[in-house]
Amino acid sequence: MTDPRPHHYRFVHRELARQVLEFGPRVATPAPDGGSLLPVVTRIWDDLGRTLPPEERLPAHGLDCRHLSVDGHPMLLVTLPTPVGATEAHFAAAVHPRGSKTVRYVTLEHAFSPFDGSPGTVLGEWTAESHLNHGQGPSPVAELFAASVVGLVTPKKRSFWRR
């Protein structure tokens, strides 16, 4: 198992999480002009790097983002540079669940099995108060992650049984 690299970890779990939770649903909704948030996300990555010792800085290669709507839920999907260490993330999503006044920040984190060390993923979420572990995540494919995010934020319908 490899420890997370400080630049990657702090970007996903601190800086981007803080920005998403501070700016709320506006982050998940595309700008009226259709502009990309990639320059902003890259600037956050680079600004964080400047606070780290040179040997801990990482290039932004692989960093990307795009707005999408999945089942009516607006989402900013951020693709991260390839994760190496445990808890580094493949993806992060700022999702504005339909009918909600708040945004949720969900991550697909790189993980290793405690039993045999094999790689896998964990679906995580940051709130203003804490980090939540939602268990095993999907393969690190953008569409699978986006579908998992929607499944997580969509209220479950209760079944009603009559006898």
Rank of each mutant, 00 (worst) to 15 (best):
R43Q: 11
H110I: 01
E22K: 15
P155R: 14
F11P: 02
G49H: 09
A89Q: 04
V95S: 15
L38K: 12
R50T: 03
E129Y: 12
E55P: 11
G117M: 01
R50P: 00
P6Q: 01
D47H: 15
E109A: 04
V122A: 02
V40P: 07
K157T: 04
G135N: 07
A31M: 07
P54F: 09
T121R: 02
E22F: 14
P25N: 05
W161T: 09
T82E: 15
Q136N: 05
Q19I: 03
R163S: 15
H67M: 14
G62R: 10
L80V: 05
H73S: 08
G24F: 11
G99A: 11
F115S: 02
H110L: 03
H134P: 01
E125Q: 11
L76E: 06
L108Y: 06
H7T: 12
H96S: 13
T29M: 08
V153P: 07
V70F: 04
P6H: 01
V122G: 00
R43M: 14
L152Y: 06
Q19G: 06
F23N: 14
H131V: 15
T107K: 07
H73V: 09
L37R: 08
D64W: 13
E22T: 15
A147W: 04
K101G: 10
V122R: 03
S113H: 00
S118N: 09
A17Q: 02
A28D: 15
T82S: 14
H73L: 10
H131K: 13
S159D: 13
Y105Q: 01
R158M: 13
G99K: 06
R10C: 03
S113A: 01
L152S: 05
P59A: 09
F145T: 01
T154E: 08
R104T: 11
H61K: 12
